[in-house]
Computed example of a mutant assay.
Amino acid sequence: MTLSLSRLISMTTVAIATLLTGCAAPKAYDYTAFKQARPRSILVLPPVNESVDIKATHSLLSQSSRPLAEAGYYVLPVALVEETFRQNGLTQADDIHAVELKKLNDIFGADAVLYLNVKRYGSTYYVLGSATVVEAQARLVDTRTGTLLWDGKASASSEEGKSNNNGLVGMLITAVVQQVISSVTDQSHEIAGIASQRLLSVQSGKGLLPGPRHPAYADAAP
């Protein structure tokens, strides 16, 4: 079957339009609620662990305060917060995430609460290597109104930036070395720190807005 010239042009136009749409820049995040609330202090709750590694919750929690502080916010001490929950009979992250916002505000007095979820955490082994991956999601909610101020997700992998141009023998040697290192060190904790930094740092267009202690705070005002 022979296509007519007009039909061919039409099909080409559709294909180009589809390609351009797929390559379009991602939509900018709507920071309207964030700018109106202008939170100064953040309560970080223990992350809900959806991975199979029991260390994931405290690994991410222990590395969440620094990027938030560097972003310009006062972060309630996570160890003290966790102990407060424990003293009140709450030791599981799922139960802590279910606490009413008003109660969180009454007890801790923070402007916003950060809900974290660990989606992936740990190493996966395969024939010619292994990869340690950490993926996390976050939601920042106003404790006074319940308004979602911001949400985001980030991941990090031990395989980032690595080249596989070493040949089969080189790949096998590298795989053995990687598996030995993974078995004697907690590489996941290091990767979690990278993921946390990516998730909770100030980033143009998708990350947290600068807090009141950040040099760029005035530029983020409404």
Rank of each mutant, 00 (worst) to 15 (best):
L60Q: 03
P26F: 12
Y31W: 15
V99N: 03
S201R: 10
Y121K: 06
G170S: 11
A218I: 02
G109K: 08
S163I: 06
A156Q: 05
A112S: 06
Y217E: 12
P210F: 12
V177I: 04
L101H: 02
E70F: 08
Q36C: 01
A136E: 08
V14I: 05
K206I: 05
Q179V: 09
S65V: 04
L116S: 01
A218C: 13
E190P: 02
A79G: 04
K102P: 01
M11V: 13
K206P: 00
Y125V: 13
R120V: 02
H189W: 14
S6P: 10
A56E: 06
A71I: 00
S158Y: 06
R40T: 01
M1P: 08
V127A: 14
G161V: 08
K27W: 07
G161P: 07
P39G: 02
D53P: 01
Q92L: 08
G152A: 07
K35R: 10
R198N: 10
P26M: 09
P26H: 12
E100M: 08
E83Q: 14
H214F: 10
A136Y: 03
L172A: 15
R139N: 09
E50N: 09
K103V: 14
R7C: 00
L45Y: 04
T174R: 12
Q187E: 11
T21A: 15
G161E: 09
A154G: 02
N49W: 03
E190W: 08
L148C: 00
M11T: 12
K35N: 05
L148D: 01
T91C: 00
L199H: 06
Q63Y: 11
Q187P: 01
S204E: 14
K206C: 08
K27V: 13
V78P: 00
A221K: 11
D95I: 11
N166H: 09
Y121L: 11
